[in-house]
Protein backbone atom coordinates (compact mmCIF):
# COMPACT_ATOMS: atom_id res chain seq x y z
CA UNK A 1 0.00 0.00 0.00
CA UNK A 2 1.25 3.44 -0.82
CA UNK A 3 2.44 5.72 1.92
CA UNK A 4 0.70 8.92 2.84
CA UNK A 5 3.70 10.75 1.51
CA UNK A 6 3.33 9.29 -1.95
CA UNK A 7 -0.29 10.24 -2.01
CA UNK A 8 0.47 13.74 -0.86
CA UNK A 9 3.09 14.09 -3.55
CA UNK A 10 0.64 12.89 -6.17
CA UNK A 11 -1.94 15.28 -4.86
CA UNK A 12 0.41 18.22 -5.21
CA UNK A 13 1.46 17.08 -8.66
CA UNK A 14 -2.14 16.85 -9.82
CA UNK A 15 -3.12 20.11 -8.27
CA UNK A 16 -0.32 22.18 -9.67
CA UNK A 17 1.03 20.66 -12.86
CA UNK A 18 -1.13 22.58 -15.31
CA UNK A 19 -0.41 25.95 -13.79
CA UNK A 20 3.29 25.22 -13.31
CA UNK A 21 3.57 24.35 -17.00
CA UNK A 22 1.81 27.59 -17.90
CA UNK A 23 4.10 29.46 -15.52
CA UNK A 24 7.16 28.00 -17.25
CA UNK A 25 5.76 28.93 -20.66
CA UNK A 26 5.12 32.38 -19.27
CA UNK A 27 8.87 32.77 -18.67
CA UNK A 28 9.42 32.63 -22.41
CA UNK A 29 10.57 29.02 -22.54
CA UNK A 30 10.15 27.39 -25.95
CA UNK A 31 6.90 25.48 -26.21
CA UNK A 32 8.63 22.18 -26.92
CA UNK A 33 10.78 22.54 -23.79
CA UNK A 34 8.05 23.44 -21.35
CA UNK A 35 7.03 19.94 -20.36
CA UNK A 36 10.62 18.69 -20.10
CA UNK A 37 11.47 21.51 -17.75
CA UNK A 38 8.28 20.97 -15.79
CA UNK A 39 9.35 17.36 -15.30
CA UNK A 40 12.69 18.61 -14.02
CA UNK A 41 10.83 20.85 -11.64
CA UNK A 42 8.84 17.98 -10.19
CA UNK A 43 11.99 15.90 -9.84
CA UNK A 44 13.40 18.72 -7.77
CA UNK A 45 10.21 18.85 -5.75
CA UNK A 46 10.52 15.13 -5.19
CA UNK A 47 14.15 15.36 -4.12
CA UNK A 48 13.45 18.23 -1.74
CA UNK A 49 10.07 17.20 -0.46
CA UNK A 50 11.25 17.31 3.14
CA UNK A 51 12.40 20.89 2.70
CA UNK A 52 9.05 22.25 1.66
CA UNK A 53 8.28 25.05 4.12
CA UNK A 54 5.18 24.61 6.19
CA UNK A 55 4.22 28.25 6.02
CA UNK A 56 4.30 28.67 2.22
CA UNK A 57 1.69 27.41 -0.20
CA UNK A 58 3.09 24.45 -2.14
CA UNK A 59 2.45 26.10 -5.50
CA UNK A 60 4.38 29.19 -4.60
CA UNK A 61 7.29 27.07 -3.45
CA UNK A 62 7.18 25.03 -6.66
CA UNK A 63 7.10 28.20 -8.75
CA UNK A 64 10.30 29.26 -7.01
CA UNK A 65 11.88 25.98 -8.02
CA UNK A 66 10.50 26.36 -11.54
CA UNK A 67 12.02 29.79 -11.88
CA UNK A 68 15.46 28.51 -10.86
CA UNK A 69 15.23 25.46 -13.07
CA UNK A 70 14.31 27.62 -16.08
CA UNK A 71 17.02 30.18 -15.44
CA UNK A 72 19.61 27.43 -15.05
CA UNK A 73 18.36 25.90 -18.27
CA UNK A 74 18.76 29.18 -20.12
CA UNK A 75 22.21 29.76 -18.63
CA UNK A 76 23.39 26.32 -19.68
CA UNK A 77 22.12 26.71 -23.23
CA UNK A 78 24.45 27.89 -25.97
CA UNK A 79 21.74 29.72 -27.78
CA UNK A 80 22.26 33.10 -29.21
CA UNK A 81 20.94 35.87 -27.06
CA UNK A 82 21.37 33.77 -23.92
CA UNK A 83 21.81 36.81 -21.66
CA UNK A 84 18.77 38.52 -23.18
CA UNK A 85 16.71 35.42 -22.69
CA UNK A 86 17.78 35.15 -19.08
CA UNK A 87 16.85 38.76 -18.47
CA UNK A 88 13.55 38.27 -20.25
CA UNK A 89 12.76 35.21 -18.17
CA UNK A 90 13.53 37.16 -14.99
CA UNK A 91 11.21 39.98 -15.99
CA UNK A 92 8.39 37.64 -16.91
CA UNK A 93 8.80 35.47 -13.83
CA UNK A 94 8.57 38.53 -11.62
CA UNK A 95 5.50 39.90 -13.42
CA UNK A 96 2.19 38.79 -12.02
CA UNK A 97 -0.91 39.84 -13.85
CA UNK A 98 -4.51 39.54 -12.79
CA UNK A 99 -4.94 36.47 -14.86
CA UNK A 100 -2.30 34.47 -13.06
CA UNK A 101 -3.71 35.24 -9.65
CA UNK A 102 -7.14 34.35 -10.94
CA UNK A 103 -5.78 31.04 -12.07
CA UNK A 104 -4.70 30.30 -8.55
CA UNK A 105 -8.16 30.66 -7.22
CA UNK A 106 -10.66 29.45 -9.73
CA UNK A 107 -11.53 26.68 -12.05
CA UNK A 108 -10.08 28.51 -15.00
CA UNK A 109 -9.92 25.45 -17.19
CA UNK A 110 -13.62 24.79 -17.15
CA UNK A 111 -14.33 28.42 -17.86
CA UNK A 112 -11.69 28.55 -20.56
CA UNK A 113 -13.32 25.63 -22.31
CA UNK A 114 -16.65 27.42 -22.24
CA UNK A 115 -15.04 30.59 -23.49
CA UNK A 116 -13.47 28.78 -26.47
CA UNK A 117 -16.89 27.36 -27.28
CA UNK A 118 -18.33 30.88 -27.29
CA UNK A 119 -15.87 32.22 -29.84
CA UNK A 120 -17.15 33.04 -33.32
CA UNK A 121 -16.78 30.21 -35.80
CA UNK A 122 -13.88 31.79 -37.67
CA UNK A 123 -11.94 32.35 -34.44
CA UNK A 124 -12.59 28.82 -33.26
CA UNK A 125 -11.28 27.66 -36.63
CA UNK A 126 -8.05 29.56 -36.04
CA UNK A 127 -7.70 28.12 -32.54
CA UNK A 128 -8.18 24.65 -33.96
CA UNK A 129 -5.61 25.16 -36.72
CA UNK A 130 -3.07 26.65 -34.38
CA UNK A 131 -3.38 24.53 -31.28
CA UNK A 132 -4.84 21.28 -32.45
CA UNK A 133 -3.21 20.97 -35.85
CA UNK A 134 -0.09 22.84 -34.77
CA UNK A 135 0.08 25.00 -37.88
CA UNK A 136 2.21 28.13 -38.06
CA UNK A 137 0.64 31.52 -38.63
CA UNK A 138 1.91 31.39 -42.22
CA UNK A 139 0.23 28.05 -42.88
CA UNK A 140 -2.96 29.21 -41.23
CA UNK A 141 -2.84 32.34 -43.35
CA UNK A 142 -2.63 30.25 -46.49
CA UNK A 143 -5.66 28.28 -45.38
CA UNK A 144 -7.81 31.29 -44.60
CA UNK A 145 -6.36 33.65 -47.14
CA UNK A 146 -4.68 36.01 -44.70
CA UNK A 147 -1.15 37.16 -43.92
CA UNK A 148 0.90 35.59 -41.16
CA UNK A 149 0.93 38.92 -39.36
CA UNK A 150 -2.82 39.21 -39.36
CA UNK A 151 -3.12 35.62 -38.11
CA UNK A 152 -0.74 36.40 -35.26
CA UNK A 153 -2.81 39.46 -34.45
CA UNK A 154 -5.99 37.42 -34.59
CA UNK A 155 -4.48 34.87 -32.24
CA UNK A 156 -3.40 37.64 -29.90
CA UNK A 157 -6.93 39.03 -29.86
CA UNK A 158 -8.40 35.59 -29.39
CA UNK A 159 -6.13 34.90 -26.40
CA UNK A 160 -6.91 38.31 -25.02
CA UNK A 161 -10.62 37.69 -25.48
CA UNK A 162 -10.31 34.31 -23.80
CA UNK A 163 -8.44 35.82 -20.88
CA UNK A 164 -11.06 38.56 -20.53
CA UNK A 165 -13.87 36.04 -20.82
CA UNK A 166 -12.35 33.89 -18.10
CA UNK A 167 -11.69 36.78 -15.76
CA UNK A 168 -15.14 38.25 -16.39
CA UNK A 169 -16.90 34.96 -15.90
CA UNK A 170 -15.07 34.17 -12.72
CA UNK A 171 -15.55 37.68 -11.37
CA UNK A 172 -19.27 37.18 -11.83
CA UNK A 173 -19.00 34.02 -9.75
CA UNK A 174 -19.68 31.92 -12.78
CA UNK A 175 -19.47 28.20 -12.43
CA UNK A 176 -19.24 25.97 -15.39
Amino acid sequence: MESDLELEFNTILWRTQSRIRAFIAGMGIAAHEVDDLAQDVYLEVYRNFDKMPADVAPERWIKGIAKNVCLNHIRRSARRGRLHREALAEILANSEGNFESTMDMHSVVDVLGDCVAKLPVDQRQIVKLRYQEDLSSSSIGERINATAESVRMSLYRIRHALKSCVVRTLAAGGET
Partner: peptide, 9 residues
Protein backbone atom coordinates in the same frame (compact mmCIF):
# COMPACT_ATOMS: atom_id res chain seq x y z
CA UNK B 1 3.13 36.62 -19.69
CA UNK B 2 -0.65 36.28 -19.84
CA UNK B 3 -0.51 35.61 -23.58
CA UNK B 4 2.13 32.93 -23.08
CA UNK B 5 0.16 31.43 -20.21
CA UNK B 6 -3.13 31.29 -22.13
CA UNK B 7 -1.30 29.87 -25.11
CA UNK B 8 0.19 27.12 -23.00
CA UNK B 9 -3.15 26.26 -21.48
Amino acid sequence: KDQLGVQDL
